[in-house]
């Protein structure tokens, strides 16, 4: 069974969000990391802001490239340089290796995201 962490929000495109006050950390789920295989490259957004559902970076494994879609809208506060330098951290610890830190525009958006339970169902039905 693929690891799904409780207390996070999820997207159908396999990103997770961890909300701390008005800030959110965005990462890729264990399922996404496992599907991609060895991740060798991560690039954050090239804009100062990200929008819910829009591209916010690229992740590449040995075999393929995938866009990352931002689960929330907001101002980009930080891109995780540790992951830029060592993208394999995403495979090693998908819920620890956050990619982008964002200042949330609106907590209302979180309602459109999946809970851990919903995401688990989503994977089971995929």
């Amino acid at each position: 069974m693929v690891d799904i962490k409780k207390g996070l929000f999820y997207t159908k495109t396999h990103e997770w969000v961890k909300v701390e006050g008005g800030e959110a950390y965005i990462g890729l789920t264990a399922f996404a990391a496992s599907e991609l295989g060895d991740i060798v490259y991560f690039e954050g957004p090239d804009t100062d802001d990200v929008a819910q559902g829009a591209e916010c970076g690229v992740v590449e494994s040995v075999k393929s490239a995938s866009d990352i879609y931002s689960p929330v809208s907001g101002k980009v506060l930080e891109v995780n340089e540790a992951v830029v330098d060592s993208p394999e951290l995403i495979n090693e610890d998908p819920y620890g290796a956050w990619l982008i830190k964002v200042e949330l525009d609106s907590k209302e958006e979180l309602k459109k995201l999946l809970s851990a339970e919903d995401y688990e169902k989503e994977l089971a039905n995929a």
Partner: peptide
């Protein structure tokens, strides 16, 4: 099989 452990 595409891989067993990992491509690397």
């Amino acid at each position: 099989p595409i891989s067993y452990t990992s491509i690397s």
